[in-house]
Design a protein around this nucleic acid. Structure first.
Lengths: 146, 146
DNA sequence: TATTGTTATACTCTATAACTATA
DNA sequence: TATAGTTATAGAGTATAACAATA
């Protein structure tokens, strides 16, 4: 017999808790007129890991057409600058503006506040092991590891 | 200065890893013609925590109209039985069938396989602490704790 | 009147495919 | 011809609002 419950698997808990956390993050972002994916794009630019829209799409695992609309919105907000690459005029290079860095910083703070809420009921060592394990899992599954 | 990176917050990692895991779970469910929310409903019924559609909607934090369509589909698959409550004929009572229990069991096994993939790179103690912490977090944020 | 479930409708997010411009 | 980006269109998923049946 299999008396393991679905709801006690790591997979179920990661999926459902991830949705709750994203919803909570999203609620805080409304103050800055931002959506999670837009903030994700800011973080990609900040990391310096990609600059052209196509590279960004690959890194974020989203369709290139989605990057267009994310970048449109971020440009409207003054958070990114879009420039044609002079050496290959098909490429659009996105760069963070000062405003973009400020926004990313505010969003990072919002995430840190959620972290505090999440780890409130955990012991300090337990929280530290959790953070370490999540970092490893991220790295092993194609997400930023630092 | 705030040199904490967004991508290293617990909130970001839970959100993104949760999406990856849900996607992976979803891919395995296609073999049974099921979607994650439908399986979630099976798990609710199995737990005995709710039976009427409205109670289920509240428990799952979804709109009552969504429960209608989830239940329609599960009924088509022969996974649940829908009966009017004789004592209050407005209520529809959902119960798991043997087929529903089999499906839930298969989906639980799929989740357990994902768990194995996830914890592969972790030490046994580390994995155990991770499981314990996730259980606590689930319990504190309105998700099943057992 | 209030409540349960249902149906009709609309909204959000995202992908696919067709298109433009550069190479 | 192939590639980067864009636009047009479509699909999945879910919510809101109007409605029907029952209390």
């Amino acid at each position: 017999m299999n008396d393991v419950k679905l709801t006690s698997t790591l997979a179920f808990r990661l999926g459902t808790l991830g949705a709750v956390v994203t919803e909570r993050f999203s609620a805080r972002l409304t103050a800055h007129d931002l959506k999670p994916k837009q903030v994700g794009l800011l973080a990609v630019l900040d990391s310096g890991a990609a600059a052209s829209q196509l590279d960004i799409a690959k890194l974020m695992n989203v369709a290139p057409s989605l990057v267009v609309s994310l970048a449109d919105r971020l440009e409207e907000l003054g958070a990114v600058r879009r420039e044609r690459d002079p050496s290959d005029r098909r490429r659009q290079t996105l760069t963070l503006t000062a405003r973009g860095r400020d926004l990313l910083s505010a969003c990072t703070e919002a995430a840190a506040e959620i972290d505090a809420e999440l780890t409130e009921g955990l012991g300090p060592e337990e929280a530290e092991v959790l953070r370490g394990a999540m970092r490893k899992l991220a790295g092993r599954h194609g997400l930023p590891a630092d």
